[in-house]
Design a protein around this nucleic acid. Structure first.
Lengths: 229, 229
DNA sequence: TGGTGTGAACAACTTCACAGCG
DNA sequence: CGCTGTGAAGTTGTTCACACCA
């Protein structure tokens, strides 16, 4: 374990290792080598060992990694050994899709509030045990329920306005699903999930796929297979 | 313009430039320098010039780039000068959120079919002008309507099964929203949108934020502000 | 013996700095 | 004169290869 800057890419990969280990743990696997895990995650095995080496020594030489133990350590590294409080802003289809997304609680992410400005929606009780609140309550509720991350799922036109309100609360992190570039003061973290960026990459790659010599549907020629984040 | 491998990161950034240029174009801006665009996208200006240089010379020295023209060129590079046909599989909240997402058609992405296995949903007419079809019709409809990209929004447990069916059709690209690692044969492109990976990064960064000396809410100390993809 | 942990080699990507052109 | 386009320098991230240890 050394002192050095940790690559962003390493953090991203730790998330993937974490998901993979959960899956493998559920399958009852108790030990795994970096080589096997690498195959599963489609990365280089040295990469895994190096990523982990930034944070300590977690393996057993000649054996591999204990699945449960490594999973625990990675979650600790990522800060997932605590519950994170999320507030969601914008209760359209996307808002409901996310708040009902069963994987979040499993990872320690808990929605503790939901906001919208539509009078039709305000007050409506959610299965999570709290109602949809008006935007005007954001600051108060953020304090009361200790919201740490705001998830923005409003239409594009409203997102910047909402972000401005968020930066007036103690919330420091924003996960933005609206298709606009949000601008926030220094000191705030904004991550943007833009589906079209992923689609663009698919389009680019599909459009530039080398022409396939064997066009029969029976034997489509293998070429590229990528799991990119 | 040279012959060389194009970094994946370049393609990702081209998407961002494209979104930014659309926004700037709507604001009526007709010319922009790499420096200004860089500020807007929060990247280095040389980066922009270098990214573009992979594909040609699009600027005017001493002036900058013509917004409309550059936008057109970037879209062409990304393969967005055509309509892409998408099929969506799994019509839960996420499915509806995506199919109604107004930004997709603007970028040339058109949903031409929707699938689900719930008898309650099958046959239901969508505002897009086609009904939800049963999964058993996937291959036939994929051919008929020339689906090029499958968007998977099923529960995690069903996603691999669905992916297996997709690989029996001419569809070559998959955008996967289910929280599992999909395994497909070579020759298929799978991109995975995993919200928790983004949340993990936020959690990691928020958890490792250097302690803030000035804790008054009036003057929260500036530190990091990132728009990562 | 087999698989980790890691320095050293390598590859990829980013930024600098400036020549060259409109 | 100002801003693009680009070689060269610098930085960051990845892979190799093997010492070392259970």
């Amino acid at each position: 374990m050394k002192f050095s800057k940790i690559p962003t890419a390493t953090i991203t990969r730790l998330s993937r290792y974490s998901r993979a280990l959960e899956e493998l743990d559920e399958q009852g696997l108790s030990v795994i080598s970096s080589e096997k895990l690498a195959q599963f995650c489609e990365v280089n095995s040295a990469q895994i060992r190096k990523d982990l080496a930034y944070f300590g020594e977690f393996g057993v030489r000649g054996v591999g990694y204990l699945v449960k133990e490594l999973l625990f350590e990675i979650k600790r590294i990522l800060g997932l050994n605590k519950n994170w409080h999320l507030g969601i802003i914008g209760m359209g289809n996307m808002g409901f899709a996310l708040i009902d997304h069963s994987n979040f609680p499993r990872q320690g992410y808990h929605f503790v509030a939901a906001f919208d400005n539509d009078p039709q929606k305000i007050g409506r009780m959610l299965s999570q045990g709290f109602p949809i609140s008006p935007m005007s309550d954001l600051e108060k509720i953020a304090l009361d329920r200790n919201i740490e991350i705001a998830v923005i799922t409003t239409p594009a036109a409203k997102a910047q306005e909402v972000a401005d309100l968020v930066t007036k609360t103690p919330i420091r992190g924003i996960l933005n699903f609206a298709p606009v570039q949000l601008h926030v003061p220094e000191g705030f973290l904004v991550h943007h999930i833009d589906f079209t960026v992923k689609l663009d990459r698919l389009a680019y790659l599909l459009g530039n796929l080398p022409p396939d010599p064997s066009m029969s549907s029976a034997s489509r020629s293998p070429r590229i297979s990528k799991h990119l984040l």
